[in-house]
């Protein structure tokens, strides 16, 4: 019953987001029907584009899960970007300096990057648990520390021959791209991260719904006083929740920098960290919802350029339209509730 309701709410939110986007397209003098036609075709019209959509979704699934997981425990991890950077930096460092068989190297990179993300999130978690420092403030700070750490480390140790601003190219051995996968999707830059992401969705869903760990974490999130009363170690769970959240963001970093991208650039805060918040909101913090909304956002991201190319919508307006769709979809949950209340009231008065 409840599950259907939140599914319905999310769908209504998506429709609301698309409607808002349509209004904006119309305002900018374009035909919304054509606009959406090319937007969705751009994301889905052939295997390559489907692959690209999934590649964009991969990163969002990880960061969306990271944010959703922390939400479940009553924490707001706004630092997925920083954790992603640290995961990416660790992955890049290993990928550029370690030589070993791929079958060993890739798992090593995954584990190391995820651990780096976990550690980066555990610090604000510890500060929250021990000194009650608000995690929003702490994770934002950690984002900047990560940003400047990357800014220093990449040029100092991993720079290319000529360019100061990005690392050397990741060797094929350490890349998450796989030839067979690229071929299936006709030259898309989809990478094996998508399998990791799918696995993460399932594992997180199981942790939250079926394990004592999830039971503890959610209890702490809903009511830490009651959790404490019941003998659940609250500080431990806060650190743990942040660590798992950062673990996921670290995976986002590994697969983004070693799969989606081919090297690591400095001076860029990955926007997926922030988009993860919208993904989690639209997905109602459920792992399955996160997966679905990530794919939706992936379509928008990869279809936008084709819409711009095929219509008179200027790229800047294109960005705005995508942002509006995301914004309305993510906050649409609120709008639909408002709508529900209004209609209920009206039916009473009638």
């Amino acid at each position: 019953m409840n599950r259907y309701k939140s599914l319905f709410t999310a769908l209504a939110a998506v429709v609301l987001g698309l409607l808002a986007g349509a209004v904006f397209m119309a305002l900018s003098g374009s035909n919304p029907v054509a606009g959406f036609y090319y937007l969705f075709r751009g994301g889905l019209m052939n295997l390559e584009r489907i692959g690209n959509t999934l590649a964009s979704a991969t990163t969002l699934i990880f960061t969306g899960l990271a944010v959703a997981f922390s939400f479940k425990t009553g924490l707001f991890n706004i630092g997925a970007s920083g954790q992603m950077l640290m995961g990416g930096l660790t992955a890049t460092a290993i990928g550029l300096s370690v030589q070993m068989p791929r079958i060993v190297l890739l798992p090593l990179i995954v584990l190391a990057a995820a651990s780096a993300g976990a550690l980066w999130a555990a610090i604000p978690g510890f500060l929250k648990a021990r000194f009650n420092v608000h995690e929003v403030v702490a994770t934002i700070m950690m984002n900047w520390i990560a940003y400047w750490t990357v800014y220093y480390t990449i040029p100092a140790y991993f720079k290319g021959t000529f360019l100061e601003t990005e690392s050397r190219r990741i060797p094929a051995l350490a890349s998450f791209r796989a030839e067979w996968l690229t071929n299936i999707f006709r030259g898309s830059y989809i990478n094996m991260g998508i399998f990791l992401a799918a696995a993460a969705v399932v594992v997180i869903a199981i942790i939250l719904d079926k394990t004592t760990l999830g039971f503890e974490l959610k209890a702490v999130g809903f009511n830490r006083h009651a959790a404490e009363y019941a003998g659940i170690h609250v500080p431990k769970n806060i650190v743990l929740s942040m660590s798992i959240s950062g673990f996921l963001a670290g995976l986002a970093g590994a697969t983004y920098y070693l799969g989606y991208a081919v090297n690591m650039q400095i001076g860029v805060v990955p926007s997926a960290g922030i988009d993860g918040i919208a993904v989690a909101l639209l997905g109602a913090n459920s792992p399955w919802g996160v997966a679905a909304s990530s794919v939706f956002f992936g379509i928008l991201h990869s279809g936008k350029g084709f819409m711009n190319a095929m219509t008179k919508v200027p790229p800047e307006i294109g960005d705005t339209i995508i942002a509006i769709i995301i914004y309305f979809a993510a906050t649409g949950v609120l709008f639909t509730r408002l709508w529900e209340r209004l209609t209920r009231k009206r039916s009473k008065e009638a």
């Binding site: 039971f215 209890a219 809903f222 009511n223 006083h225 009651a226 959790a227 404490e228 009363y229 019941a230």
Partner: peptide
């Protein structure tokens, strides 16, 4: 302290 108000009763019973 006594209840996690957002938990179902069955979950509250095994708190």
């Amino acid at each position: 302290r006594g209840l996690v108000l957002d938990y179902s009763m069955e979950d509250n019973f095994i708190l």
